[in-house]
């Protein structure tokens, strides 16, 4: 299926019968999922379908949530949130370096900023960045840690359409270069099929559809061959053709 089969042998993430509930309302109802190392996965679902709950569980951020099941995730996990979540009182480079240390940390931070196109902005304050630039800095911060797994919770949701397209290219490019496993939570079907090699639909607390998208990159959302994937995903999400 994907061109990098040799990297896909050991699973990076394994969920078995994962359940999570809030105040007795079951949000995840026995999710089984394996993500091979280095795979780019998108997770679709309605708002309230539990996408973020799943991501937060994998990130280990659900401290006071009831639940059971087996969860294996790699040691080095990075999270990109919908908001850039840069510390406003810390300059961009130090934001990127948050939580890392070592002698080469600063050099790595600079390299990561250069990679996302923010070279020269190391000494800026986050308040001086545009929304797109702030999100690039957040990507750089996640890269510096050399993650085995990159979790992204609607990372482009707050950006304008043009910036979003540019960020899609950047994310895919960074993935090609660093090859972390990616779990991208989104509600945007086009974003999912343009970026990911595998798209999951979360439905009623379980994985309702698991679709491998076997098209070469870079993809354009106008590609007619992607149309059938889009239709199947929309159908799984309960959106029929005449409703669009």
């Amino acid at each position: 299926m994907a061109p990098h089969t040799e990297q896909l042998t050991r699973p990076a993430v394994r969920l078995k019968a994962l359940t999570r509930s809030f105040d007795g309302r079951t949000v995840l109802d026995g999710v089984d999922l394996e993500i091979p190392a280095g795979q780019f996965v998108a997770l679709l679902g309605h708002s309230g379908s539990g996408k973020s709950t799943l991501l937060r569980a994998v990130a280990g951020l659900d401290h006071e949530v009831e639940g059971s099941g087996e969860l294996i995730a790699p040691e080095r996990v990075s999270v990109v949130f919908q908001d850039s979540r840069l510390l406003p009182w810390t300059r961009v480079l130090d934001n990127v370096l948050l939580g890392t240390d070592g002698k080469e940390a600063a050099a790595k931070g600079r390299a990561a900023l250069a990679e996302v196109g923010l070279a020269g902005r190391e000494r800026s304050w986050p308040g001086e960045l545009s929304g797109g630039e702030a999100q690039r800095a957040a990507l750089a911060r996640s890269l510096v840690r050399e993650p085995e797994l990159l979790l992204a919770d609607e990372p482009f949701g707050a950006l304008d359409a043009l910036t979003r397209i540019r960020m899609h290219g950047l994310l895919r490019e960074l993935w090609e270069r660093h090859r972390p496993s990616v779990l991208l939570v989104t509600h945007d079907v086009n974003e999912a099929i343009v970026l990911a090699d595998r798209v999951l639909v979360l439905e009623k607390g379980r994985i309702g559809l698991d679709l491998t998208i076997d098209r070469p990159h870079p993809r354009s959302s106008g590609d007619p061959r992607l149309g059938e994937y889009r239709e199947r995903l929309l159908a799984a999400l309960g959106v029929t053709e005449d409703l669009k």
């Binding site: 990130a59 280990g60 951020l61 996990v77 999270v79 949130f81 979540r85 948050l98 890392t100 911060r141």
Partner: peptide, 12 residues
């Protein structure tokens, strides 16, 4: 609270 979460994610 979002910054607390960030600190957890970054392993501070």
């Amino acid at each position: 609270h979002r910054f607390v979460e960030l600190a957890e994610v970054q392993g501070l």
